[in-house]
């Protein structure tokens, strides 16, 4: 089998996610040896690190030999080693350092079927909130978003996923990224014979992304559990998380196969326009789903998490009635 080299771009942020997808694409169906060239890599945002980790994990799980080319002693090599991305399993010479011993580094967490989401969410939310000195209201929002992401991966992904959160002191922004390597959104609807397929027979990946952020839109809402009970899934997590991001003037990005949805609420506000109504199609496909949110916790101001949630749910038509609150205790 020939060896192929995947040369990674120097920097991946929300503006050039498609460049990472294009760089990884030649290795998607490769079964020989893969050489990942990190030589020019300087900075990757959490969603990009998760996408890279999901791809690496898929290769390793499928017996593909992965080797890294990197600058000896470079900051990025140290960083990727510390977050556990480059470990001995991935055939690197980099010595692994336990990230938990150095609080300057944020964890990259693996999500598997047997992962206990409470532990992962608490670790990530606590780490990010502590670094930013955030109050409990912000911590609750971070934990909520992380948990919804975690459950999405557990419920929809066939393979393992990765999640990461990071606070950037210079910009004051939280980033939470998640990615899996799997069948993507469109295929999951096809495989579950979802009623939502009706009318979307000719839809492409970008159309499916635009629909995926609608409340109650999920590939599993029509399914029954083994014991005959209603599905666990009501299809609201993604739409609520996106709406929180909008309220906190952040950025929401969703990637599945060729589709790329990018809602930058800060730019939209600065330019006095709305976020794009339509997602776009990338030249290359990412095998799986990735999602990223960023938000500025200072924009919380005096708003409580409870009030923010009420506003968001009412906007989406998912809010409860005030008159029902008395049913749940005085």
């Amino acid at each position: 089998m020939p060896t192929i080299t995947i040369k990674l771009p120097p920097k991946i942020d929300h503006d050039n996610t498609a460049e990472l997808v294009a760089a990884l694409a030649p290795g998607r169906a490769h079964s020989g040896e893969v050489r990942v060239d990190l030589y020019e890599v300087t900075s990757y945002q959490p969603h990009a690190i998760c996408m890279l980790a999901a791809q690496l994990d898929y290769w390793i799980e499928n017996g593909v030999s992965v080797e890294f080319r990197q600058k000896e002693g470079s900051e990025i090599s140290k960083y990727l080693g510390k977050i556990g991305l480059l470990n001995n399993q991935y055939h690197t010479q980099e010595k692994v350092i336990d990230w938990s011993k150095n609080r300057d580094y944020v964890p990259l967490e693996l999500i598997e079927n047997n992962s206990r989401p409470e532990s992962v969410a608490d670790a990530l939310a606590g780490s990010a909130a502590e670094k930013a000195g955030s109050n409990d209201e912000v911590r609750q929002l971070i934990r909520y978003a992380i948990f919804e992401f975690l459950m999405n991966v557990k419920q929809h992904s066939r393979a393992a996923g990765f999640i990461m959160s990071q606070y950037y002191p210079k910009t004051g922004l939280y980033h939470i990224g998640v990615a899996d390597y799997g069948i993507g959104i469109r295929q999951s609807f096809l495989e579950s014979s979802s009623p939502f397929l009706k009318g979307m027979e000719n839809s492409d990946d970008s159309d499916w992304l635009d629909s995926a952020i609608r409340p109650k839109f999920s590939s599993k809402t029509h399914l029954r559990n083994a014991n005959g009970s209603r599905s666990d899934n009501h299809g609201v997590g993604l739409s609520i998380t996106r709406a929180f991001t909008r309220e906190c003037l952040g950025r929401f990005q969703l990637i599945s196969q060729y589709g790329l949805l990018d809602h930058d609420f800060v730019s939209a506000m600065n330019e006095e326009k709305d976020v794009p109504v339509k997602s776009t199609m990338m030249p290359q496909s990412y095998n799986g789903v990735a999602c990223s949110i960023t938000f500025n916790p200072t924009l919380f101001g005096n708003t409580t998490y409870q009030q923010l949630r009420r506003d968001v749910l009412n906007q989406l038509g998912l809010g409860g009635s005030e008159s029902d609150l008395g049913l749940f205790g005085s």
Binding site: V236, Q306, G319, G320, D324, L325
Partner: peptide, 19 residues
């Protein structure tokens, strides 16, 4: 019946009821 609910928890339960 429900007890020990904070205002936030009541909101979650009310939206589940709406669902």
């Amino acid at each position: 019946n429900f007890k020990g609910c904070s205002p936030l928890i009541k909101d979650f339960l009310a939206s589940a009821l709406a669902m």
